[in-house]
Design a protein around this nucleic acid. Structure first.
Length: 560
RNA sequence: UGGCCUAUGGUGUAAUUGGCAACACAGCUGGUUUUGGUCCAGUCGUUCUAGGUUCGAGUCCUAGUAGGCCAACCA
C-alpha cells in the first residue's frame, strides 16, 4: 500500500513520528466509533477510510466500536446498517465492540473517582447547573453540592444506579475546575439517570455515562493508540486526557486523541441530524434514498465502493474547512464505471424513426461490443427493424454545422447498425415532431467491412427497435439541494434549498437484452450515463436509477 | 470581553521538514474515436496582510485580518 515518495497526510505524519519516537508497530491500533443513531454518510467514509486505511498501511487492528451511551436515540437497526456499510466499503474490523460493554468498568472507575474526591453527585436542575456554568467569557461558580461527603456521594450514586431516583434528579460530575477557560473542564457531567431500555443492556442500567467519560476510557480499554475524531472535539481533548489521567496504568499504552476536519460535500448536508430530518419529513423515501449522501443511498444510486474509496483518497485529510464539489465525487463514479459498466442502448425521450426503404416486417440481429474499454466483455446481439426510436434531442429539421446529429438531408450512423439519412418528418397539430422518415444505406452495416461501412459520418446515435424495446421505469436523479452549501446560511434554513427536481421519473425504452438485468446491475446507457437496477425493480416493472450522466461536452457548447 | 483551531490556483490536497510550489478535479485549445463518452497532447492559474529571523521562508517568530469551534443530563 505505501510507496516511496508517497505523500502522507498529517495524521500519518503523526503516526510515523510516534514510530520513530518509540512506539512499536505492534502498539498501533485504531478504531472507527460510530454512534448507532443514524446511517453512515459520505463524511463518515473519510473517517472509515482513514482508520481502516491506517490499519492496512501499518498492519494494525481496527475495531468497530459503537458509541452506544444514549439509549434515547440509538437502535439495533442502525447497528446493522452501519456494519453493512463498512463491509460494503470493503473493510474488515478486528473486533466488534460496544461502549456498553464497558458500563461496569466505567461504573467501577466512577466509584473510584468518588472515593478519591474527584467526582460528586449534583442534585440541581439542569437550568441551575447551566446558570452556574458561566460563559466562554466568564468563569463558572461552584455547585452547592460540590463538597458533599464521599459517603453521601457513594450512597447517592448507588441509588442512581439502582433506579431509586427519577430522571433529571441527580447527575454525577467530575470535580475539576469551574473557572477553567475550557468550559468542558467546568465539572463535566459523567452520568445521568435514564430509565430507558438500551438496545444491548436492556434495563440493566438506570444510569448512562456521557461521551467524554466513555470515549477515552473505551480507547484505553481497547488499547487504541490513536483516537481520531473530527475538529469539533478538539476542546474535548483536555478532558479526554484528564479522564485518562485518573485511570491509566503507566505500563499500558495511553491513547491519544487527534482531530481532523470533517469533509463537506457541495449541494448536500453531511449531518446525521439533518439527514434524519429529511427522512422523517418524507423529503426523501428513506435513509437509502438515492438522493441521500448516505453510504446506503450512494450504493443504491449505483456508486461502487472503489469509486467512494478513490474519492476519499483524493480529497485527503487535513484540518481546514472545506467544501468539496460534488462533481469530484461524480468524476470518481464515472472513472470506475467506465471500466466496468456494460454498454447498452436505451432511449429515454423517444421519437419514432421509420426507415422507409427497409423491408416491412423484416428484422435482423446485429453484433455490438459490450464494453470498448474491456475487450474481454465480449459482444452481444441487438435487434434492428424498420421502426426505431431515437432521442428527441438527436433530431432537428435544420441546424448548423456544430450539430452533428440527425437533420433533414443529413446523415448519421446508428450505433452498430447502418448509416441513415433523414428525408422528412411529420408533426402533430401542435407542431411536435411525431415521426421522422429516413432511408438507410444497406451496404453501410457496421462491421461488414464494405467501403460504405467504413465511411466517416460525423454523428453516431443510439437507438432501439420499437418492436423489440422493453419499457422500464427510469429514475433520474439530480442534486438534493439547489445551493452548494445549504446549511451555512445564517438567515435561512437548509430545508429552504431543497431541489424539487432532484428526482424525475420517466419511462424509457430499452434494448431487449436488459430483460435479464438483476438488482444492482450497473450499465452505461450509451451517450446518456450510468444506470443501475434499483431494488424496487421486478420482472413486471424494471426500475433503473441514473447514477451519473456522462460528461456532456455538447451541453456546454449549447450553453454558450 | 475569552479560549482553541485554521488560512496554498475556481475546488480539494501535497511540498523530501528552511532549498526551483506539485498532483487530481474543474476550465480552455487541439487530436483520436461507430458513445459530443473514453483516451492522448497542450494550456490557464496559487502560498491572507504587514513586519522580523535567515544566504534562502508556503514552512520559523511577532502583530493584524478572515473563517470555524466552545455555554446539551447529545455524540
Amino acid at each position: 500500500m505505501s510507496e516511496v515518495g508517497e505523500s502522507l497526510n498529517f495524521i500519518e505524519h503523526i503516526v510515523e513520528e510516534d514510530l520513530e519516537n518509540g512506539y512499536s508497530p505492534s502498539d498501533l491500533r485504531f478504531r472507527f466509533p460510530p454512534e448507532p443513531n443514524g446511517y453512515l454518510h459520505i463524511g463518515h467514509a473519510s473517517s472509515i477510510c482513514l482508520n481502516f486505511g491506517l490499519g492496512l498501511r501499518y498492519n494494525a487492528p481496527v475495531n468497530l466500536r459503537f458509541d452506544d451511551t444514549n439509549p434515547i436515540k440509538e437502535e439495533q437497526a442502525y447497528v446493522d446498517a452501519i456494519k453493512k456499510d463498512v463491509e460494503w466499503l470493503g473493510y474488515n474490523w478486528d473486533t466488534e465492540r460496544y461502549a456498553s460493554d464497558y458500563f461496569q468498568q466505567l461504573y467501577d472507575w466512577a466509584v473510584m473517582l468518588i472515593k478519591e474526591g474527584k467526582a460528586y453527585v449534583d442534585s440541581q436542575s439542569s437550568e441551575q447547573m447551566a446558570a452556574q456554568k458561566g460563559t466562554p467569557y466568564e468563569p463558572g461558580r461552584n455547585s452547592p453540592n460540590r463538597n458533599r461527603s464521599v459517603a453521601e456521594n457513594l450512597e447517592l450514586f448507588k441509588g442512581m444506579k439502582d433506579g431509586n431516583f427519577e430522571e433529571g434528579s441527580h447527575v454525577l460530575r467530575a470535580k475539576i475546575d469551574m473557572t477553567a477557560q475550557n468550559m468542558l473542564m467546568r465539572d463535566p457531567i459523567m452520568y445521568r439517570v435514564l430509565h430507558k431500555a438500551h438496545h444491548r443492556t436492556n434495563t440493566d442500567w438506570c444510569i448512562y455515562p456521557m461521551y467524554d467519560w466513555t470515549h477515552g476510557e473505551s480507547d484505553y480499554i481497547e488499547q487504541v493508540s490513536h483516537s481520531l475524531c473530527t475538529l469539533e472535539f478538539a476542546m474535548h481533548r483536555e478532558l479526554y486526557d484528564w479522564f485518562l489521567d485518573q485511570v491509566v496504568d503507566s505500563k499500558k499504552l495511553r491513547p491519544k486523541q487527534r482531530e481532523f476536519a470533517r469533509r463537506n460535500l457541495s449541494h448536500t448536508v453531511v449531518s446525521k441530524r439533518k439527514l434524519l430530518q429529511l427522512v422523517e419529513q418524507h423529503v426523501v423515501d428513506g435513509w437509502d434514498d438515492p438522493r441521500m449522501p448516505t453510504i446506503s443511498g450512494l450504493r443504491r444510486r449505483g456508486y461502487t465502493p472503489e469509486a467512494i474509496r478513490n474519492f476519499v483518497d483524493t480529497i485527503g485529510i487535513a484540518k481546514r474547512e472545506n467544501l468539496i464539489d460534488v462533481s469530484l465525487l461524480e468524476f470518481h463514479a464515472r472513472e470506475h464505471l467506465n471500466k466496468i459498466a456494460l454498454r447498452v442502448m436505451g432511449v429515454l425521450d423517444p421519437v419514432k424513426v421509420v426507415i422507409t426503404n427497409y423491408p416491412e416486417g423484416e428484422e435482423e440481429w446485429l453484433e455490438t461490443e459490450n464494453n470498448p474499454e474491456d475487450e474481454s466483455a465480449g459482444t452481444r446481439q441487438i435487434p434492428f427493424s424498420r421502426e426505431i426510436f431515437i432521442e428527441r434531442a438527436d433530431f432537428k429539421e435544420e441546424a448548423n454545422r456544430k450539430f452533428f446529429r440527425l437533420k433533414l438531408g443529413g446523415e448519421v450512423r446508428l450505433k452498430s447498425a447502418y448509416i441513415i439519412k433523414a428525408e422528412g418528418c411529420t408533426k402533430d397539430a401542435d407542431g411536435n415532431i411525431v415521426e421522422i422518415q429516413c432511408v438507410y444505406d444497406l451496404k453501410s452495416k457496421s462491421g461488414s467491412g464494405t467501403e460504405e461501412s467504413m465511411r466517416k459520418v460525423k454523428g453516431t446515435l443510439h437507438w432501439v427497435s420499437i418492436k423489440h424495446a422493453i419499457k422500464a421505469e427510469v429514475r433520474l436523479y439530480d442534486r438534493l439541494f439547489s445551493d452548494e452549501s445549504p446549511d451555512t446560511h445564517k438567515d435561512k434554513d437548509f430545508m429552504d434549498f431543497i431541489n424539487p427536481e432532484a428526482l424525475e421519473v420517466i419511462t424509457g425504452y430499452l434494448e431487449p437484452s436488459l430483460v435479464s438485468a438483476k438488482i444492482g446491475d450497473r450499465v452505461q446507457f450509451q451517450r446518456l450515463g450510468y444506470f443501475c437496477v434499483d431494488p424496487d425493480s421486478s420482472q413486471e416493472n424494471l426500475v433503473f436509477n441514473r447514477t451519473v450522466g456522462l460528461r456532456d461536452t455538447w451541453a456546454k457548447i449549447q450553453d454558450q
